[in-house]
Design a binder for these strands. Structure first.
Length: 456
RNA sequence: GGCGACGUAGCCAAGUGGUAAGGCAGGAGUCUGCAAAACUCCCAUUCAGCGGUCCGAAUCCGCUCGUCGCCUCCA
């Protein structure tokens, strides 16, 4: 199995260190409703996790919650509630949304504010080793103390300083030095530390939690491409300088970012599309199909039309997975699923090529439908379709009827319509079908009788 | 200015040295009382453009054009 790592810029043979694959995923800063970017990220790494499980690995998946940060503090102050309360509220909403998208919950969800002692330990260690220094109650990481700083984002300190966007730090030795600990400002939450009251910098939490829950070297560290610099670069610096061990993470996986039209979807641009907004119009499976239809490292442009298209394709899979079992011919051929399973594994083994994995699912669906037509035994194929879809997190459930109360009446109409059809009263029969369609119910006449489903 | 990614059919999107997956849309059929669904067939002599390397390139190299991202909070 090969996985592309941002660090080496190539696909690497995946070799977990031990029995359990350790994964750290950079989580969210919860101060508002979650958006498409969160959903895309979660769906992608949920799929990675599911696939590893499918391949027989045990997985320990840690995803943090950053519950202390400028925007949370601002927002909470404006609302007059404690930052922690705000963070918890939106973190819970985030996990609700993710559950809707069939994203498995992380095994461990550490909250930054509950891990301050571990962070202080790491910071102190960095100070002791000369990798960090305290100024006016703040502590900064000394980037010049790390010779290979910049190795993840593939840039050098000098090239970065040549850039126009660096503000010289008032108290920093080097403008690229970054805060491990920030001295408390009035109106902000703070914790006691050897350097006085303050709060952690953004990057230190992930190093601390990763070290605490997964050890000094983890198998996979993942996040969005926008986190490569500075966040992940700084995590490496802190962690490797603290432990003296390399690498901090063996494989760095980064997903491409959502684009909206021609622009990135971003908080600063303000063109955010919320998840709830999407789920009003589209199914969770449809959204997952849309995301997995392009490779995870490429940017993905959002459009309702594109999700619609994904959803149409999805219906074929659902149909094949759930169609009425047709009569099987005596000594019918039993279609086996070995080759499609092998193909699925082959493409997923190559850096999680989900677009090709989906192509395999469509092939299976066609084989199932064709098999049914020919009276073959498709039970094994159908099972494979469901199972492999499940590996991608697709449920292939029919859209819930939401008409359960109306079901008996619909059944009655179907019966009446059958009588009309038997009597060749097609005009009336068609009228029933048309009117029912207007109310959102699709009738389909099959060899096994008439079925109905909800229109999307 | 530095670093990086990308440009494949009407749309979405794989493929990264051996002769273009898949989905959506579209066209023609089969089935059906008619539909729908399903199935069958068709739908890129060509991969932004121009050069080069090679027996062979969408895939490697160079240049040009275009788009986007990171360097600042962001998944």
């Amino acid at each position: 199995m090969k996985i592309y790592s941002t660090l080496s810029r190539q696909k690497e043979e995946f070799q977990p260190q031990g029995e359990v694959v350790t994964i750290y995923s950079c989580g969210v800063t919860p101060y508002a409703e979650s958006h498409l970017g969160h959903a895309m990220n979660a769906v992608i790494f949920d799929t990675v996790r599911r696939y590893l499980l499918f391949r027989g690995y045990k997985v320990k998946f840690v995803q943090n919650i950053t519950d202390v940060e400028d925007k949370i503090i601002d927002r909470a102050n404006k609302l007059g509630i404690p930052p922690r309360e705000l963070a918890e509220k939106f973190a819970n909403r985030y996990f609700e949304d993710m559950a809707t998208l069939n994203v498995m919950k992380p095994d461990i969800i550490p909250y930054a504010t509950e891990e301050i002692p571990k962070m202080l330990e790491v910071i102190q260690g960095l100070v002791d080793k000369g990798h960090a220094y305290a100024v006016n109650g703040s502590v900064y990481f000394r980037v010049r103390s790390m010779p290979d700083y910049g190795k993840l984002s593939h840039r050098t300190l000098d090239s970065m300083q040549a850039g126009a966007r660096i503000e010289p730090g008032e108290e920093k030795e080097d403008p690229m030095d970054f805060a491990l600990w920030k001295a408390a400002k009035p109106g902000e939450p703070f914790w006691e530390s050897p350097w006085g009251k303050g709060r952690p910098g953004w990057h230190i939490e992930c190093s601390a939690m990763s070290l605490k829950y997964l050890g000094e070297t983890i198998d996979i560290h993942c996040g969005g491409q926008d986190l490569i610099f500075p966040h992940h670069e700084n995590e490496i610096a802190q962690s490797e300088c603290f432990t003296g061990k390399k690498p901090f993470a063996r494989i760095w996986m980064h997903n491409g970012l959502f684009q909206l039209g021609d622009e990135k979807m971003s908080k600063s641009i303000g063109n955010i599309v919320g998840i709830k907004q999407i789920l009003e119009k589209h199914s969770a499976d449809g959204f997952r199909m849309f995301v997995l239809g392009s490779h995870y490292r490429n940017p993905l442009t959002f459009s309702d039309e594109a999700i619609d298209a994904a959803e149409k394709g999805l219906e074929r899979l659902i149909q094949a997975a759930n169609s009425e079992p047709a009569p099987v011919k005596a000594n019918a051929e039993k279609l086996d699923a070995r080759s499609v399973r092998q193909k699925f594994t082959e493409v997923m083994d190559d850096d999680f090529n989900t677009p090709q994995a989906l192509a395999v699912l469509f092939d299976i669906a066609r084989d199932v439908n064709r098999g049914i037509e020919q009276g073959a035994d498709v039970s094994e194929l159908r099972h494979a379709l469901k199972e492999l879809s499940g590996v991608l997190g697709l449920t292939l459930k029919k859209p819930e009827t939401a008409f359960t109360d109306a079901a008996p009446f619909i059944e009655l109409l179907i019966k009446t319509r059958k009588q009309l059809r038997d009597a060749k009263q097609f005009k009336l029969a068609d009228e029933i079908r048309d009117k029912l369609l207007e109310t959102g119910v699709i009738m389909e006449d099959t060899a096994q009788g008439t079925t109905w489903k909800r229109k999307k």
